[in-house]
Amino acid sequence: MNEPDSSPQIGQLVKILQGRDTDQFAIVLKVLDERFVFIADGDKRKFDRPKKKNINHLEFFDYVSPEVQNSISETGRVTNGKLRFAVSKFVNEQITDFEKGEQLDG
């Protein structure tokens, strides 16, 4: 994500690398400028109180939640349930892929 031409996208999944929420997953709700984004996970950090984060403190994944992206582009907001669903879906897929990889090695 350090390349200047790749910028964060609305609905993109991130892992928080620094701060009190370290190692938590969240979704980009809004891109403020080239350095900051608003993120939320729908659980501890709700849509109506997003966290402003420096993009250098986030690990960006190639996964963009279509449900969240569509909801924000159509209505300007997204439900906390949809955020929770998108985060848990991504985490479950990642963990499942990791476990499959482990089983192949073992």
Rank of each mutant, 00 (worst) to 15 (best):
E59L: 15
S6D: 13
E3D: 08
D5P: 08
V68H: 03
H57F: 06
M1R: 05
G19T: 10
F60I: 02
S71L: 03
T96D: 11
N80D: 01
G81W: 00
D33Q: 07
L83E: 07
F38Q: 14
V37N: 08
E59Y: 14
Q69C: 05
L32Y: 05
I39K: 02
F47C: 05
T96Y: 05
P4K: 08
A86I: 01
K30P: 11
R77W: 12
G81V: 05
N80C: 04
N56F: 09
T22N: 06
L17D: 06
D41M: 01
Q18I: 14
S73Y: 06
Q12D: 10
N80Q: 00
L32D: 10
K89W: 11
V91K: 10
I39A: 06
D97G: 04
D21K: 14
L83W: 02
V78A: 09
P50C: 07
F25G: 02
Q103L: 12
K30N: 14
F98D: 15
Q9P: 10
F90P: 00
K44E: 11
V37L: 08
G106M: 10
N2E: 10
F98K: 03
V87A: 00
I72V: 09
D21R: 10
I95C: 03
E59D: 04
R35C: 07
K100T: 05
K46Q: 07
D62M: 06
K100F: 06
R35I: 06
Q94A: 01
Y63K: 04
E93Q: 14
V68G: 03
K46M: 08
E67V: 00
E102F: 05
P50F: 15
V37P: 11
Q24F: 08
D43R: 11
F38P: 15
I95Y: 02
F36A: 15
L17E: 13
N54V: 00
Q9N: 11
Q94Y: 06
G76I: 01
D33F: 14
L104Q: 08
E93L: 13
K46S: 08
A40G: 10
L104K: 09
D48M: 12
P8L: 15
D41E: 10
D62T: 13
D62L: 12
T96G: 08
M1I: 05
Q24K: 06
N80I: 00
I10M: 07
R49F: 15
Q18E: 03
T96L: 13
E67C: 02
F36R: 15
L29G: 09
F25W: 02
L32M: 13
D48L: 13
E74P: 11
L13G: 03
D5V: 05
A40Y: 15
D33A: 11
T79Q: 00
P4H: 09
G106I: 06
A40M: 15
G81F: 01
L32R: 07
I10V: 07
E102T: 02
Y63E: 10
Q9G: 08
V78M: 09
T96E: 12
K15V: 04
N92C: 13
G81T: 09
N54F: 08
E59M: 12
Q12P: 05
V78P: 03
F25V: 02
F36Y: 15
